[in-house]
């Protein structure tokens, strides 16, 4: 049954190529909120991901720094993080709707929640690993607390933080597609769902390819950043 579906129902390569060609021929058109070019849709998804991701990082990095440097805080917050981390971010959508009364900020809220955990966990791990040798240097030469944070703690933890951000971003990019299917306004996830409703499978496959290439590109950018902040 699966094989016959593969043969008869799934689009042929030529159809996918044609669909992709059409989509990319005029990718930036804008005929109202429900009819936009593919790159316009991609851009609105990226905007949501970056807003949620940036907000998440803004909370997650300081939270991870505190968790990593104060054992008491870590013991208190670790169970909370471990409990919330495995929850599908989509489960937070209703909470977002209640909080913001609108689908758009609720979608960003989902991404925010998604982006938190890997960054919190990696930052805390990095910060808690500052070797005693470096702490002793800071103490012997009497570094001020600010100097310790800026010259010892953050540079030491930075590679871990960037790895956390990279994982956060990767998951956020996966989640945005589902979130947009749920919120149903615009974006690449909305496009996939819309194409499915129109039984336009070549467009669905085209969107999958575009999502993949975009995710891969950003992952590579984070990879470059990781190499930049590495001090080994």
């Amino acid at each position: 049954m699966l094989l016959s579906a593969l043969r008869s129902d799934l689009p042929k390569l030529s159809e996918i190529g044609a669909a992709l060609g059409t989509l990319l021929k005029d990718p930036w058109y804008n005929r109202g909120p429900n009819d936009q070019g593919i790159l316009n849709l991609l851009l609105s998804s990226l905007k949501r991901v970056f807003s949620g991701f940036a907000l998440g990082a803004l909370i997650a990095i300081p939270m991870g720094v505190v968790m990593g440097s104060v054992p008491g805080v870590r013991r208190a917050l670790d169970p909370v993080v471990q409990l919330l981390r495995p929850v599908s971010p989509l489960a937070w959508f209703p909470i977002g709707l209640v909080l913001f009364k609108s689908a758009e900020p609720a979608t960003v809220f989902i991404i925010f929640i998604t982006a938190l955990w890997p960054t919190v966990i990696n930052t805390a791990f990095g910060v808690s690993g500052v070797p005693q040798d470096f702490k002793n240097v800071a103490r012997v030469f009497q570094f001020t607390p600010t100097q310790y944070v800026l010259r010892v703690l953050l540079p030491y933890a930075l590679p871990h933080i960037v790895t956390g951000l990279r994982i956060s971003f990767g998951i956020a990019w996966m989640v945005i597609v589902a979130a947009e299917m749920l919120s149903g306004k615009s974006g690449i996830g909305f496009f996939v769902w819309d194409a499915w409703n129109a039984l336009n499978l070549p467009n669905v496959v085209s969107a999958i390819l575009i999502i993949g290439v975009t995710g891969f590109t950003f992952d590579q950018l984070f990879n470059v950043l990781e190499k930049k902040v590495s001090y080994v």
Binding site: D133, F134, N136, V137, R151, V152, P155, Y156, L158, Y231, V232
Partner: peptide, 8 residues
């Protein structure tokens, strides 16, 4: 073990 800060 020298304990120089490797990022500086």
């Amino acid at each position: 073990n020298y304990s120089l800060l490797p990022w500086l």
